[in-house]
């Protein structure tokens, strides 16, 4: 068992580009679900719209990268409007149904054969990252001791990504301590009460959905830029559910919850994956005999353990890492 690579790779994932993507997506969900109580099960759609708009602007239509970023943010806001107008007046469950369907629709549309000229079908798009990479201040691999190392491109994505995460957290913090954030939290508690106090609940829910969606778009940009490619499989439904897991691990309605959640989630998932694949590797004298678990079975173990961990978390610490148990106990009255 190679513990250096086990921990090294896990840490690399825990603070690497993937963790950033999920942190951003979960920050968006935190605004929507954590603070406002909106069940958005289609965060992947917002990520896809953001990422694909940026990619198609540059590689399909040859427009500027920055224009693509602005349009990506703009179109996610439009998507939020489209989803919100019919559903936000209804009960929370309707939004959940509509968003989960929208996520699939978006994924099927960008992967469709008839729009291959625009979005490249199942192969997706490439060659849109040149502008982004041209600003890269790193020219070599970045190594921290002997434990972790990132390529220059990954390091650049991480620098920009963590800055974005910090800015988003700052924005969330500024917003949720303000009277605006208080209205969101009140809507989560009781919509009718807020309405009776003269607040336009519909408008606040829409603002929340749009803001959370735009944080999702940032996650979409990061997905595309980190691999310099984008394709429909990057936006499958499990992306949204991973983002929810990240949010719940960290603690919903806590500013730093999604960030810490994402780091823990990606550390655990990588660690478990590497541990079981090493433990069952036949060439290095397996720790676990093949009669108990083969190498192919080992690759599934991480999800089993993650599911178990999530269940235990929900039972023993339902408020997440940062949550306040006292606050949660109020529900049990």
């Amino acid at each position: 068992m190679d513990f250096v690579s086990l921990f090294g790779d896990s840490i690399q994932q825990a603070i690497g580009p993937t963790a950033i993507v999920y942190a951003l997506a979960a920050i968006g969900l935190n605004i929507q679900f954590g603070y406002t109580g909106l069940l958005n099960f289609g965060q992947a759609a917002f990520m896809a719209v953001g990422g694909y708009t940026m990619a198609a602007f540059v590689s399909t239509w040859g427009l500027s990268f920055w224009l693509g970023i602005v349009a990506g943010l703009g179109l996610t806001a439009v998507l939020a409007l489209l989803l919100g107008i019919p559903t936000l007046r209804l009960r929370a469950d309707y939004l959940a149904i509509v968003t989960i369907a929208a996520a699939e629709i978006v994924r099927q549309v960008v992967g469709s054969v008839s729009l291959k000229d625009w979005f490249g079908g199942q192969d997706g798009l490439q060659e849109f990252s040149d502008t982004f990479r041209s600003y890269n201040p790193f020219s070599d691999r970045i190594e921290v001791g002997t434990l972790v190392a990132w390529s220059a491109n990954d390091a650049w994505v991480m620098l920009v990504g963590w800055t974005l995460v910090l800015l988003c957290c700052l924005m969330t913090w500024l917003l949720v301590r303000s009277p605006w954030g208080r209205v969101l939290k009140s809507i989560r508690e009781d919509e009718d009460a807020v309405r009776s106090l003269g607040k336009n609940v519909y408008s606040y829910k829409m603002q929340s959905l749009m803001l959370g969606g735009m944080f999702g778009a940032l996650a979409g940009f990061c997905v595309a830029l980190r691999s310099a490619a984008i394709n429909p499989s990057m936006f499958a439904t499990d992306v949204t559910f991973f983002a929810y897991t990240v949010l719940l691990i960290g603690g919903a309605a806590r500013v730093l919850g999604p960030v810490v959640g994402s780091i823990i989630f990606w550390f655990l998932i990588t660690f478990l994956d590497l541990f079981f694949s090493q433990a069952t590797n036949p060439s290095s004298g397996p720790l676990i005999p093949p009669s108990i678990m083969t190498e192919t079975q080992a690759s599934l173990m991480r999800f089993i353990f993650l599911g178990l961990a999530l269940m235990l978390l929900m039972i023993f610490r339902p408020q997440g890492i940062f949550g306040d148990r006292k606050e949660l106990a109020i529900d049990a009255r």
């Binding site: 009277p179 605006w180 009140s186 508690e189 009781d190 009718d192 003269g198 009255r333």
Partner: peptide
Amino acid sequence: TKVLAKLTVLENMRVGATRQRGESF
């Protein structure tokens, strides 16, 4: 009664004030 359970009593009261400037995004 519709109190906002997970907000403090004081926060409940503050929500009550109408036309607050800080309530715009």
